[in-house]
Design a protein around this nucleic acid. Sequence first.
DNA 1: TCTACGTTTCAATGATGTTTGAAATATTGA
DNA 2: TCAATATTTCAAACATCATTGAAACGTAGA
Lengths: 115, 115
Amino acid sequence: MMDEGQAVAAFAALGQAHRLRIVRRLVTAGPEGLAAGLLAEAVGVSATNLSFHLKELSRAGLVTAQREGRSIRYRAAYPDLSALIQFLMRDCCQGRPEVCAPAVAALATCCPEPA
Amino acid sequence: MMDEGQAVAAFAALGQAHRLRIVRRLVTAGPEGLAAGLLAEAVGVSATNLSFHLKELSRAGLVTAQREGRSIRYRAAYPDLSALIQFLMRDCCQGRPEVCAPAVAALATCCPEPA
DNA sequence: TCTACGTTTCAATGATGTTTGAAATATTGA
DNA sequence: TCAATATTTCAAACATCATTGAAACGTAGA
């Protein structure tokens, strides 16, 4: 369960255009992730700058890294992204369940029914 | 539907400890909101500093303000918070529906079944 | 071992964000 | 109109963040 401090770190990490694009790209890449070089090209940022942002995202727990030959493969940290959504929903629903309805509706359109 | 730019602004706004506490407090306060003075006390921040953060949150569309006598009442902008959750979920589920399962489970524990 | 490749680290620079206290503004009630 | 209350604006100081290019590092193949 994500605490307030972790949530602040995660939000701050996502509150930067390049970084948000990076995690979006990694999420769409799926569990296979993407090598840093390809990511840099996809996001349109220098290798140096990408490295800076990836370190930032990594500190926030939003991405993971794994060396693979001479490249380094990055992946979205799905559990932590999930935890962040839950944090937002916990807050958002607190005492006001109806607030979540739109989110629930969105879920229905993007996901299959949960078990 | 929230776009990437709005999402960056919202995340950046929430990625600051004082501001996150402010919106959490406003969310728990419900639709009635809270006067600035009470908020300042609740969050433990000077009036001046609170004003700065509220302006920031307001720019990001996360809170609304309404004068009421000599106080100003602030409220959480539920629709925008909801839209932010949806943005995260759209990304998160993209091509990987199973990622949302924990979020769905969380929904079940905090919200009634949607219509 | 040498060279090329992919990535990170470092140091410098400029840009933004946060906090503070004093002063200004708006509202109310005497 | 005056004084009190609630909040914001302003300017200054400080801290943090983003970007850049050069250099360093680790890995792979000739």
